[in-house]
């Protein structure tokens, strides 16, 4: 095992991000799509913290960015879950494929 370096973190981050995109595009359940979006946001956080720790040690900019991103992501998920709950109360499922009234 070699030393952990920035490139490993960046690769992990891009892999996570790609899995997130794949999840958003392939999942049919609204809650799982939200989870995939969370995965993408965590990939961003991983990338930022890696760069901040390896290249930008004199400042804390990456850390600050991450704190804001975590907060905003939490707010976003709370909002999205409320809307999903509203959908579930009326339709009894959260399958996004069944939402097909609006087209064109």
């Amino acid at each position: 095992m070699g030393e952990l370096s920035l490139i490993h973190i960046q690769i992990a981050s891009i892999v996570l991000f790609s899995i997130g995109i794949y999840g958003v595009l392939s999942r049919r359940n609204a809650v799982l799509i939200l989870l995939a979006i969370e995965l993408m946001l965590n990939a961003v956080n991983l990338n930022l913290i890696g760069v901040s720790a390896f290249l930008d040690q004199s400042r804390f900019l990456g850390h600050i960015l991450i704190i804001f991103i975590i907060t905003i992501a939490a707010a976003e998920v709370a909002l999205a879950l409320a809307i999903v709950l509203k959908l579930y109360k009326e339709k009894r499922n959260t399958d996004v494929d069944k939402l097909d009234v609006l087209k064109w």
Partner: peptide, 9 residues
Amino acid sequence: NESSIKYIL
């Protein structure tokens, strides 16, 4: 319902 869930996702 449909439009709000589309918008937020």
